[in-house]
Design a protein around this nucleic acid. Sequence first.
DNA 1: AAAATTATTGTAAGCGTTTGCAGTAACTAC
DNA 2: GTAGTTACTGCAAACGCTTACAATAATTTT
Lengths: 355, 355
Amino acid sequence: MLIILDEETLLKVVGDRNVVKKQNATIYDVANRVGVSLATVSRVVNGNKNVRDSTKEKVLKAIDELGYQPNAVARGLASKKSTTIGIVMPDVTNLYYAELTRGINDVANMYHYDVLLTNTDDDPVRDVLAINSLESKQVDGIIFMGNELDQGVMKTIDALNIPVVLAGCVDAQKKLPSVNIDYINAFYEITASLLRHGHENVALVMGSLDEAINRDYRLAGYTKALNEVGRQIDEKFLFTTGRDYQKTLELAPKVVASGATAMIVYDDVVAVALLNYLHDHHFDIPGQMELVTSNDTNYSIISRPQLTSIAQPKYDIGAVAMRMLTKLMNNEDLKEQAVKLPHAIVQRQTTHELS
Amino acid sequence: MLIILDEETLLKVVGDRNVVKKQNATIYDVANRVGVSLATVSRVVNGNKNVRDSTKEKVLKAIDELGYQPNAVARGLASKKSTTIGIVMPDVTNLYYAELTRGINDVANMYHYDVLLTNTDDDPVRDVLAINSLESKQVDGIIFMGNELDQGVMKTIDALNIPVVLAGCVDAQKKLPSVNIDYINAFYEITASLLRHGHENVALVMGSLDEAINRDYRLAGYTKALNEVGRQIDEKFLFTTGRDYQKTLELAPKVVASGATAMIVYDDVVAVALLNYLHDHHFDIPGQMELVTSNDTNYSIISRPQLTSIAQPKYDIGAVAMRMLTKLMNNEDLKEQAVKLPHAIVQRQTTHELS
DNA sequence: AAAATTATTGTAAGCGTTTGCAGTAACTAC
DNA sequence: GTAGTTACTGCAAACGCTTACAATAATTTT
């Protein structure tokens, strides 16, 4: 014989309220208690106007009494919306992406979206897997960050029924909505400034040239400034490295050996490593070497001397990207596809007065 | 008259493959194509043995051809499992938590869980909201990080039908499984060491004393060391502050004014701020002031001088917490409820030789 | 006061899976 | 060959909600 105990009886048996986890109430329970249909309860839960005030109150009361919370999964299945977005990013541990993420998160919460987060370490294979997984979880939108939009990734995104916005990530084909700073100009400006100050040999330290953001943006800005004063790029001043402190420490002597007297660096971790190498080898900074980094994370304030940096509105890049995504999810049109947020050059201690 | 076009016809009309997003295939489509029932397809998808090999192959082939991907939401509703876990944390932007998160994420992915991430800025109200939201999304488990388990939060967790593991977060009542280092001993050791080296006045810089982790752990270890040499705590050497660079800069002169000749700091951002204050005011470190921090994030390597630190296996704390959670979600028993991972003291440049 | 309109509520068909149970086919042992 | 097993497969009922559409009640209009 099967005995089904009600909660109170069960309590007596078990003796400890904490052991008796109440089965979560369903919309059905609420409807029953009030004596209305599921549809009515659903309407009040979803803020539908077509409910008499008196009914609404009764339902609300019952919801409160039962501690009813709509089951988001069931909701998702029925409505095809999950009120969840996905973030695909290289690494939470990198301050640059962490701050973008923070911006995304805050705006997402503001619009009552939850956030599914995946680290892919810039591995296109994992990017694709992540996107597929997000699709199967029926996210309403995706924000993609990372150095490079691999072809396979692009294809996957293309086949998606879900809006995607890029944040701090460049799409050479300009097919996807994105939020960035004007990388070309930023690198142009800082290079030009350094050249104006008499530097003959300005090193550029970037990520892989296979990535559009380095090749077509950072390097392009640098080249433009050089060309403008009638000079060509000299490969010996070009360096590439991953965002890794230790590895960059190994790269440092090579940069020094190149004869550069100034360097522009694409990432703060990399810049700090170079700076510390110079510091530990008693270089005079900025006397012997000027140094500009480009993400303006906490690192550039914390380092001694403090790093002059291209400042990006990181939090805002994330926030704006997320805001755009909400519009897309809402089938609204975007005014701009490729949003460029303003950047600045923050003068600190690793350069002389800039202008 | 309503005309429903098949994809190919639609293609001819629209002319652009990219505009025709294929409707995702369902389990039903697969079953139809092979000529078996839904149940059979479901079985092969879920790796159930009871399927003849030849059938299995046919199904697999159809799945491949249709590009079928199970709908995780429907699955979740039917099976009551979401293969998703939730993380509730103060702030992704804090390197300490970011590294824990990284550990959690990697292990979660290893076990094919996705991760829902919420920042709550240590606000108990938002903690509760986040947990409720996660519950309604039917996550299979939750990892909670943060300074303090507020009463309300505790209550919410108690009422949950979902396993929760704490990471880098202390539960004074020891009711919840958790992963930490042995904070008491860590702070005891470093304090004792500093005392042995002749410091009369050792400052302790922590977060709020309302939080158990500060009051009952960090302070307790510090006190123990003091008592051991027959001394009492002197309130004038106790300082509390949030994890904020600028605010700590304001606190710094007070710490100096206290007459302390050594300080133990609970967070790297805070420690770096203090260090930089001292550096910028030309203090001799460690000559005039020794400084120990306690999270050993990148900051302590990047700062100049580099920070001596209590080293925590941050990534592993996250990883182990997640591993424990998988067991709990699998209804396995835990060997230990409160796991303590080993810590170490990493000697760098802000202290003299320790012992 | 009947008709027309509008506001409110209920009915029931999904949404795409999983899964217990029942049925059928294939195999084994006698 | 028959009974007893075992291996496969299918049926159909959930899971908890949303949402057309239909039905009823309340209100206005004439």
